[in-house]
Amino acid sequence: MNSWYFSHLTLIQGMLISVPLALSVQIALRSGVFSFASIGFYGVGAYGTGILTMRGWPVLPAMLLMIVVSGLVAYLMSAPLIRLRGLYLGMVTFAFDLILTVVATNGGELTGGALGLLGVPLGIGTGGLLAAALVAILAVSQLERRAVGRALVGIKASEELVMSVGVDLKSRKRTVFAISAALGALSGSLYVLTFSTVQPTSAGFTLIITTLTMAVIGGTSSWIGAVIGTVIITWLPTLAATIGEYQHLVYGVVLVLVVMYAPEGVLGALRWLWRRLAPRLRPARPPALVPSGGPPPDRGAAARAEPVPADRVKG
């Protein structure tokens, strides 16, 4: 056990770091906010925390500062963004991520240019990573319960409906956007404090693919999906030795296949199985399609009651 743990330490750490990031995409997708912005804030968190700790800041305040700043910036940014239709929001946040990559490359001494930050002091152990992942899970999972959970699912299904039942749509979407960004920043901070380095490309296109795959493969309907996806994507390369440098190719193929055949992800497949098995497990009861009480349908009466033939009314 112990030797296994140490030989797989990097993977375990990587997995724990990825959990908040996968959650950041999952909570956004679940709420109908199609945004890649949290990948950009991953970069902000990594660079920010790295730069601060290299200048002598203690770890915890540096991390917290970057998380809070990312959340606030995202909240302010979101005002014009959340008006956008799904696809446009996706592309704008994609552009935002690439702008940050360019900024990091051009940041001179502060960001270390194309080489990025090197030699950030190690500031967190596996226990700390685990704690951070658990906090992220707790925070996100709470938002899937009760009224908040229903409202967020509703936003994705029908914005008109949730507004008509009194949900403050804009504010909920903006807050989700901010939380997603804060989770991204948390993940980036954890990364830089664990591996002591970050490059401009760290938060680039490959990270978008990887994270999206994690969230989508598991299923975006729940935090459990994001966690399942993170576990799968982390351990997939170790299962097949040949994957190695082709791992992003495998992610790409997996992502396409999941979108085609199981858009609800692993979670969706499990639910489907449960629905098939559940009726056999619980006692049978009569199909209750017709509500109790009330006489049988009387089509004749309904037709007689129609004052105007339907084809005349169409105008």
């Binding site: 009224a147 908040v148 039942v165």
Partner: peptide, 16 residues
Amino acid sequence: LGADQPVYGSSFVRQW
């Protein structure tokens, strides 16, 4: 879903 908002609102902070 219809009763949620009149009874609770959907404050994230309260939910947490």
